Simulated assay, not measured.
Amino acid sequence: MSLAKVPCTIVTGFLGAGKTTLVRHVLENAGGRRLAVIVNEFGDVGIDGEILKSCGIESCPEDAIVELANGCICCTVADDFVPALKGLLDRPSPPEHIVIETSGLALPKPLVKAFNWPEIASRVTVDGVVAVVDGAAVAAGRFADDPEAIARQRAEDSSLDHDNALGEVFEDQILCADLVILNKADLMSADAVASVTDQIGKTLPRAVKVVEAANGQVPIDVLLGLGARAESDLASRPSHHELEGEHDHDDFDTFIIDLPAFPSQQVLADRMVKAAEQHDVLRMKGFVHIAGKPMRLLVQGVGTRIQHQFDRKWSAGEARQGRLVVIGEKGFDRDAIRALIAG
């Protein structure tokens, strides 16, 4: 019976790790497979969906890319995820493989559990959970929690009543993985790669392959066809949130900045760096119009690391309105960030 099920690959990973780039690479190298994508947004603007839809891949048309923008996918299983999955399965030509890109703040285990829901249990299976890790960020210690240091800090500061929320999210994604992609390995030294790989290995409770990558370039046969049946293997995927019915994202905040046209991409990048340096910004991602350019600029930032590229031409009659999603820890100064970036 499991052989008749449509395999699904869950792509998880922290903010800016490169999940969308990886999924786009899968679509562009589908090898004739009929694919579908469910992409989850943290916020109400479909940035990731727009990136994927601009691929123009025949085996994954735009109507096979479903965006869920009503909050974290692991918190809206009944209302959003299950109906979206059923809608894809009920298509006249259902997909042969479904790729699910979670938001950077999602815990993957509740989503894996959802595959046991009666409405979909007989129709789909989790082929594998792929965790994308920003190797350069982890090497710099951004999400590498030291339990002893945290314990000392908690003992000294009575206001701390829980562990680092970012570290828990990061570890939960690794703990659930069937494959770990160490992305941005080209930005790391050999020693740093070895150190992060060792750190990931110590986090994992079981043997999981770690694959180095640059810009999400991983052979599709490495990503698809893992045959993990993860929904039947929940016990080997521990979680920091095991005893919680669901989790919330009260430690994070997100908002959207409407952007004017910019004279150059460097002007925008410089402003984003300044905002990240002066405020607690984790992630920025969006589109912008560069004056005099016929193509739309895709811009992404993780901390002070900013990347940008022209991804497609503006469509005829399309409003050249830039938008940027900004994600950070609760309490950052929205007005100040907006003023720094939009001017």
Rank of each mutant, 00 (worst) to 15 (best):
G141R: 13
I57A: 10
G31C: 08
I38C: 00
F252D: 00
R323Q: 15
H308Q: 09
V130K: 03
K285R: 09
R271N: 14
I65Q: 01
E119Y: 06
G87C: 07
A291D: 08
L88W: 02
G104W: 01
D146V: 10
L15W: 05
V23D: 00
A131C: 15
A291G: 08
A131N: 10
A36K: 00
E148T: 15
A78E: 15
T12S: 15
G245N: 14
C8Y: 03
R229Y: 00
A36Y: 01
R237T: 03
E168R: 08
H97R: 09
A144G: 12
A64F: 06
E242D: 12
N29Q: 07
E50P: 01
T12Y: 07
T125E: 14
D90S: 09
F262S: 08
S195R: 15
G331H: 04
A275M: 13
V129R: 08
K274Y: 06
E156R: 13
R283A: 11
A114K: 09
D250K: 15
N40I: 02
Q217L: 09
G301S: 14
R320T: 15
F255N: 14
M1C: 08
I200Y: 05
T254Q: 06
V326Q: 02
D280R: 14
F143L: 13
V193D: 00
S195Y: 11
C75Q: 08
K202W: 06
Q153T: 10
G135M: 10
E41Y: 01
D233T: 08
F170H: 05
F262T: 06
E62H: 08
G303I: 00
A149M: 13
G87Q: 09
A261D: 14
G32S: 03
L182A: 03
K109W: 04
Q199N: 13
S159V: 08
V208D: 04
A261G: 14
D127S: 11
E28C: 01
K109M: 12
L324T: 07
D63H: 13
H249M: 13
D311N: 11
L52A: 02
A276V: 13
F115N: 13
C72W: 09
E101Q: 05
F332S: 06
L22K: 02
Q278G: 11
P94T: 02
L111V: 14
V112I: 13
T102G: 03
S195F: 12
T76V: 12
H162R: 15
L224G: 11
K274L: 15
L259F: 03
D280K: 15
D79P: 06
I306C: 12
T102K: 10
A228W: 05
C8L: 05
D172L: 01
D146G: 09
A269P: 11
T125F: 12
Q217S: 07
V112D: 02
K293Q: 14
V126M: 11
Q307P: 00
A228G: 05
N215V: 00
V66A: 02
R305D: 01
T9M: 00
I47R: 01
H247M: 07
P260A: 09
A36M: 03
D253R: 11
D172H: 00
I256W: 01
P238T: 10
R338P: 00
G71C: 14
D90E: 15
L175F: 14
I220D: 06
F255M: 11
D186N: 08
L35F: 05
R154Q: 11
V82P: 12
I120H: 12
K109E: 08
R312Q: 01
